[in-house]
Design a protein around this nucleic acid. Sequence first.
DNA 1: GTCCAATGTTGGCCGGACCAACAATACAGA
DNA 2: TCTGTATTGTTGGTCCGGCCAACATTGGAC
Lengths: 158, 158
Amino acid sequence: MNIPEEAPPRRLRGLPSRLANQAALTANRIVDRALAQAGVRRYHYALLATLEEYGPASQAGLVRRTGIDRSDMVAIVNDLAERDCLKRAPDPEDRRRNIITITPAGRARLVELDRLIAAAQEEFLAPLPPADREHLIDLLTRLVEPHEDRRQGIGSIR
Amino acid sequence: MNIPEEAPPRRLRGLPSRLANQAALTANRIVDRALAQAGVRRYHYALLATLEEYGPASQAGLVRRTGIDRSDMVAIVNDLAERDCLKRAPDPEDRRRNIITITPAGRARLVELDRLIAAAQEEFLAPLPPADREHLIDLLTRLVEPHEDRRQGIGSIR
DNA sequence: GTCCAATGTTGGCCGGACCAACAATACAGA
DNA sequence: TCTGTATTGTTGGTCCGGCCAACATTGGAC
């Protein structure tokens, strides 16, 4: 579902799931366009940000932090390795693992991406005054978190 | 980006675009699962709802109302025609057009889908108390609408 | 030593959101 | 009246994100 030129049916207009979708669609359009200026996609940013914040990690570790699928992770790491944004080295202590480390070039790239992302957020939230923005963020956080928890029960046995 | 098992980086956690995405992802999972019980997808529901609310229309008209792409519309109309949920008839007044009409079977189906959709919304919003739900809907509406307008300027020259 | 779990990798699938091109038809302006 | 432009339906793609299954390798627990 994209953007209608005429009024969509009342049944759909106020539907929370649809609103969430439209918001995500809009946000993604803006963010994708911003990141495209640097020739990357959302995945790349998520990965670099994770590496920078938590330091070197195995691909499996990165999967757990980002929620990206294992199979997709391979491709993204390949991508970023080709651009010298990170290094893939075998873990001497566990030969199953690759240890992924961000490079100086990767950090530099990340700085640039941070800027682009910040601008994109600004553009996305532009229609709302600052107070409402915070409120929205708060509501979305409180909406989303319980749904995440309820999958593979954090705090339960597992 | 799916659901992480460990804390994702701070950079991403509060990002409005990411929150919107997570919300949409959750909503879609719930809605898709609900609609799957009736063997349909979101597109089918959107189309039937539009037909029921605005009456018969050409495919192009439906495209304008729903925001679904022309090429996708063909497939969805095919799908629903096969299941006798709608009829495709040539417009005698404009031989380019097909006039799409919902059938009684389509209406019946729609009633069922409405029920499923309502339950899905409930599940999606469950983490929030009623007051916050309304607030969220309001905020999302006010966030999304201006973005829609700014594309192909409603009210501008065009 | 055996068996199960985790890891990285390959190769897929699906759905939603697009885009380009084309034939048929309609319509407005010269 | 004719000519060019728009609209409509349709075909046949592309891309990305979100998955899943299977496999070989390696670790670790029993």
